[in-house]
Every structure is written in C-alpha cells, then in structure tokens.
Write a protein that binds this DNA or RNA. Sequence first.
DNA 1: GCAACATATATCACCAAGTGATATATCTAA
DNA 2: TTAGATATATCACTTGGTGATATATGTTGC
Lengths: 114, 114
Amino acid sequence: MSQPLEVPLTPAVFFTLFALAGGDKHGYAIMQEARKLSDGSFRMGPATLYTTVQRLLELDLIVEVTGDGEPDGRRRTYRLTDRGSALLGAELKRVEALLRRAKAMNWKPVEVKP
Amino acid sequence: MSQPLEVPLTPAVFFTLFALAGGDKHGYAIMQEARKLSDGSFRMGPATLYTTVQRLLELDLIVEVTGDGEPDGRRRTYRLTDRGSALLGAELKRVEALLRRAKAMNWKPVEVKP
DNA sequence: GCAACATATATCACCAAGTGATATATCTAA
DNA sequence: TTAGATATATCACTTGGTGATATATGTTGC
C-alpha cells in the first residue's frame, strides 16, 4: 500500500476522489465528471486518469467493484473506500479553513483586464 | 515569461502567493508563513521554496523589491504582482465554487478511527 | 569568547507525478 | 460505413517538488 498520502491532495487525486464521492463510476466517467465539477478548469487526459486510478487502488482509497448490474465487460467501475472518503473529507476541511482565513484577512485580488 | 500558469495551482505556488498576499516577505518568511497558514499541514523546505520563487519571478507573478527600509543586505524581499494577485484570486474563487458544490451535494465523509 | 540554534539563501541529484501522443476496440448515429 | 463518442491502456518525456547538504550571519545564554 506504499506511502499513506496526505493533504494537500494533487488536483488529479482530488477530482478522482470527488467524482467518486457522487457515486460509483468507471474511468471514462471520472474524466468527464472531473471536468464538469471544475467547470472546465481541470481537464484530465487518459494518461493522468489511469495512472491516478492505479495509484489510488494501491493506496486502498478506491476499489474496483464487480458483479453488480454492470453488463458491459469492458468497463471497470470504481468506488470510494472509507479511507478515500476520510481523505477527501480532510482535504475539503483543509480548503475550507484556508478560505475562512482568506476571508478573515479580508484579502481581495486586483482587477485586471485579460 | 514562459507558460502562463493556470488554476488549479500546486500547493507550493498557492502558499507562496497566499503568504505574499498578507504583505511583502523574504524567502524564509514565506516558508514559515506557508506552514502557519496551513496549520502545519504543508511544510515547504528550502529547495521547494527557492525553485518556486524562481519560477514565479520568471512568470511575473511576484517581483523582488529593493531599496525600501530593508537594511539587511542578505535578504531578498518579494511582492505579489497584479498578475499574481489575479491568479490567487482565481484560485480562491475556484476552491470556493468547489466547496459550494460539495455542500450542495450534501456529501459527508465517513467517520474513521486513526 | 564560544557553543548552540535560528535565520537566510542556495544548489545538487533524485523521484513522484502528470502529460501529449498514440494505440486499440466497441458502441452510436447519420 | 464512416465518423465520432465511449472506454481502457501504455510509452516516453517533462515538470515540479524534495531530502540532503552547504554556507554565512544573527541571537541567546553561559
């Protein structure tokens, strides 16, 4: 299971876990969901997706689910484990604290023309 | 100025910009501030700090400020540029939207014993 | 005066992780 | 029947972060 993996999470890991938080999905659906969840700002290609999935499987943050009503043999469906869920929770908690801090210092970005 | 650099930001970039959002700082102070801002969850060593600073300078996201009341010749003080400020603003906006989405789907992590 | 430690910057060699490109196969719609 | 979406997979490469280490100065206590 190699190294435990801590927050802050990388975008690829975060969006993979986050996509699965909305329900079991196969790889391709994770890619699409990641893009949707980020409003298009994060696009994960197949190389990033499948290497990330491989790592998360090894770390026991996701598992492949088999046998349930998935008739299509070529799809591999993944599910968030309790460890994965807890890690995602920790990450969300982390960014929430960060945002609170940013608001507390009343920081505002400058206006710029693109 | 190489590649424009987009959100999502890496933790090293994010915390460097965020630390400077609280005012001009020299490298070592950025390291300490990053740790403080993350409540200890993110620790940046000198290697990461100075390579990140170098990159941000090249990208015109931060500048070195000279001449102002800094008597110590060995310190190099950095300041967020407008571009840097705008990018940090975009990143904060991004994670805010993400948190809203997480709350909207009413997702809660499982409880786990450490 | 000097030992111990924090401050401060810098660089090397290495590694983890993401990525563009490409390949392969199936499914869907015109 | 062909074009494009769906779906998974892998290679070679790059980017970026990291532990270790080096160097020098400032600070504190004895």
